[in-house]
Simulated scan of single mutants.
Amino acid sequence: MTIVAPASDVRRHELAEFLRNRRERITPEQVGLPRGRRRRTPGLRREEVAQLSAVGVTWYTWLEQARDIQVSPQVLDALARALLLDPSERSHLFALAGALDPAPNTACPSVTPALRAMLDQLGPIPACVQNSRYDILAYNTTYGRLLCDLDALPPEDLNCMWLAFTNPEWRGSVVDVAETNRVMAAKFRASMAEHLAEPAWKALLARLESASPEFREVWARHEVVGQSGKLKYLRNAHVGLLYVEHSNLWLGPSAGPRLVTYVPVDEESRQRLEKLQELAQSRQALASAGV
């Protein structure tokens, strides 16, 4: 009689073997640790990975022993960084752990080279690709300077909900920010209904509730609004007031990624967006030249 191990057991053992293999292939010098004279372990020691990931040594040891323990997306993210995993390896790590990667900069299959080229061609119209969680997956130069300096932000902050409730520059660019944020939170709640158990959504919600009293107050209203476009006034720090029409173009199912554009409503706004694009391109060129 053949006994087939449960899929969860197989996955835990694959995860343990994968972590062990990746740990053993990294030298201490690669992560800024001294080698020492008595090192017998190939690659890193378990306690060194635990130290680099800010997790307990015993807990990490259990993980490599394929014990049945829960692993949060945040810990997996820390392990991926400590083990210097490339994008494919990182994706494999999260798949083995049965978790969704919360990193906003995780490659999205909807953002193809052709779509990135189209974003650039849309200039001076600000445009970006967002998912239903409001992560900003890609954007053109004008959008990168529309509400704040997106290029200056860490990848984990490239999320419109996070920026709307915590970033002073973004908030200062939105006319009637309180009402706009109320509607955004209602749209976010409507989108989240299909993702209530997903770690990435729960992690973003917890982060917002921890950082923003305004978000906690708005979220407690339990308002729900569907996705739709609207006319908006934006106050750009570089070119002044802009009157634009916010539109969504869905790139797949309505719960999936979308192309977001801000089309100028009047000629003055168009001219100001052209000026903003020139400023953004000039700054980008200087940055590329190392100036």
Results as ranks from 00 to 15, higher is better:
225 V>K: 14
225 V>Q: 14
158 L>C: 12
156 E>R: 15
210 S>R: 13
232 K>C: 00
241 L>C: 01
186 A>K: 11
212 S>I: 04
200 A>I: 07
187 K>S: 05
233 Y>E: 09
188 F>A: 15
213 P>E: 01
250 W>Y: 10
243 Y>I: 01
205 L>F: 09
197 A>H: 13
177 V>P: 02
174 V>F: 06
204 L>C: 10
215 F>T: 03
176 D>L: 08
202 K>L: 14
233 Y>H: 13
146 L>G: 03
199 P>V: 11
149 D>F: 02
147 L>P: 01
194 E>D: 13
184 M>H: 08
155 P>G: 15
253 P>S: 13
182 R>T: 14
173 S>G: 15
240 G>S: 01
167 N>I: 04
204 L>E: 11
194 E>P: 00
195 H>S: 08
247 S>M: 10
256 G>R: 06
157 D>T: 08
205 L>K: 10
216 R>L: 02
199 P>D: 15
161 M>S: 14
249 L>M: 11
225 V>L: 09
167 N>R: 07
160 C>V: 14
252 G>V: 05
247 S>W: 03
199 P>Y: 06
224 V>F: 08
203 A>G: 03
169 E>D: 14
164 A>E: 03
247 S>G: 03
243 Y>Q: 02
198 E>R: 13
177 V>I: 13
222 H>F: 11
151 D>E: 15
248 N>V: 04
239 V>K: 00
246 H>F: 09
146 L>K: 06
174 V>H: 06
152 A>R: 10
215 F>S: 02
187 K>D: 01
242 L>S: 01
236 N>A: 00
256 G>M: 05
240 G>I: 03
207 R>M: 04
220 A>Q: 11
170 W>A: 04
164 A>N: 06
157 D>E: 14
255 A>I: 11
222 H>C: 11
217 E>H: 09
155 P>E: 15
230 K>C: 04
227 Q>T: 08
229 G>D: 03
206 A>L: 11
238 H>A: 06
188 F>D: 07
226 G>V: 08
161 M>Y: 12
222 H>V: 11
226 G>R: 10
233 Y>F: 09
248 N>T: 02
207 R>F: 02
163 L>W: 12
171 R>Y: 07
162 W>T: 13
168 P>N: 05
251 L>P: 03
219 W>I: 13
195 H>Q: 08
246 H>S: 00
210 S>P: 00
167 N>C: 10
208 L>T: 11
160 C>P: 00
212 S>H: 02
189 R>G: 09
177 V>R: 12
176 D>I: 10
164 A>F: 06
253 P>H: 12
226 G>L: 07
223 E>K: 08
241 L>T: 10
191 S>R: 13
185 A>E: 12
235 R>D: 05
246 H>V: 00
168 P>G: 07
154 P>N: 05
206 A>G: 14
147 L>M: 11
248 N>P: 00
238 H>Q: 09
241 L>A: 04
201 W>C: 03
165 F>V: 12
244 V>M: 00
180 T>L: 05
